[in-house]
Design a protein around this nucleic acid. Structure first.
Length: 164
DNA sequence: GCCAACGTTGGC
DNA sequence: GCCAACGTTGGC
């Protein structure tokens, strides 16, 4: 028996933080597709650059009451230069970024499904698979972080959803 | 609003 | 290269 890789299968899983007051999962549902710009942290940027189109991401609401995962998104375009770094009028402008070698990257994401209810950070902490995640460890502020297949599966099960 | 933790900056 | 000061993140 031969195993043929499923080209639709994600190669990795991620978690993307966003403040819902600024841009929440309902906003992603409304617009359908969004450039994930404004990331200005090297570790987060490196994670963005490691993404491939087709990868799935948990959409996390940070700085919210309560904080937690609101839904699932898909990476629909791999990393390319974040245009805001060259926009002097933007809060994300970086005058030290060289256009010939842009410092900051973004990906495009689209919504896949909304959780019926927010999967709170508190509940994530209780899942064994999530004990080792930077998300649940004190002091970690990374806004784009990798998620294991086990963590992703456990989160969906806890939220009571299945991928379409 | 508080504050712990972290990343970045810049003087030396 | 060190490290103090500062700004930001993000849970509570």
């Amino acid at each position: 028996m031969t195993t043929v890789p499923d080209p639709a299968a994600p190669h990795a899983f991620w978690l993307l933080k966003s403040e819902p007051d600024v841009f929440g999962f309902p906003d992603l549902l409304r617009v359908g597709r969004e450039p994930w710009n404004g990331v200005r942290n090297y570790q987060a940027r490196n994670n963005l650059r490691a993404m491939r189109a087709g990868d799935l991401a948990l959409f996390y609401h940070s700085n919210a009451k309560p904080a937690g995962v609101a839904g699932v998104a898909r990476v629909v375009r791999a990393a390319y230069p974040d245009d805001l770094q060259f926009d002097p009028g933007s809060a994300y402008h970086d005058p030290r970024s060289d256009p010939a070698e842009p410092r900051w990257s973004m990906v495009d994401v689209s919504p896949v499904l909304a959780f019926p209810a927010l999967l709170t950070l508190e509940r994530l902490r209780d899942l064994p698979a999530w004990q080792a995640s930077p998300l649940t460890q004190k002091g970690t502020r990374l806004s784009v972080l990798p998620v294991t297949a086990e963590q992703f599966t456990a989160a969906l099960a806890e939220a009571g959803v299945r991928l379409p």
